[in-house]
Amino acid sequence: MGFLDKEFDDGNIVVAKAEDLLNWARLSSLWQLSFGLACCAIEMMATSASHYDFDRFGVIPRPSPRQADIIIISGTVTLKMALRIKRLYEQMPDPKYIISMGSCANSGGPYWKHGYHVLKGVDRVIPVDVYVPGCPPRPEALLEGLLKLQDKIRKETLRKKTA
């Protein structure tokens, strides 16, 4: 990454590329849409709470999609909910990112064969950046997923959104 670890004689000057600065700002304050679906949401809440402390990565829950940068799909996506998720995603301002959390959101999970009401993977309606496996994933796994997303954002350029 970058410029924060470079040392200069004059402590007031930092030299950086604009896209590094933008990427750094984006990855350091990924405001999350507070949105939970099923048992994964319980783990997501545990990740947000003091013991695992999502806030140290700049993840703050926001009540409105208009203020959110990231949506964590935490749980089983039913067909009924899929339409609402799509609407929420479209309401988020760019740049926006998606973490698919747990087997259900990744692929339908245990509902993949007989789940008449379940969408078999949230990536059928919205573009997912990071998939976190697990049923449900432990908070450490979700944190790892977030770090992966931060790595992706760090490599973005102004010319092309790669994440």
Binding site: Y116, L119, K120, R124, V125
Partner: peptide, 14 residues
């Protein structure tokens, strides 16, 4: 029961 193929353009079967 037989599941429909699509719901609002979303494929239901795996």
């Amino acid at each position: 029961y037989k599941n429909p193929e699509y719901y609002h353009g979303m494929k239901i079967h795996f």
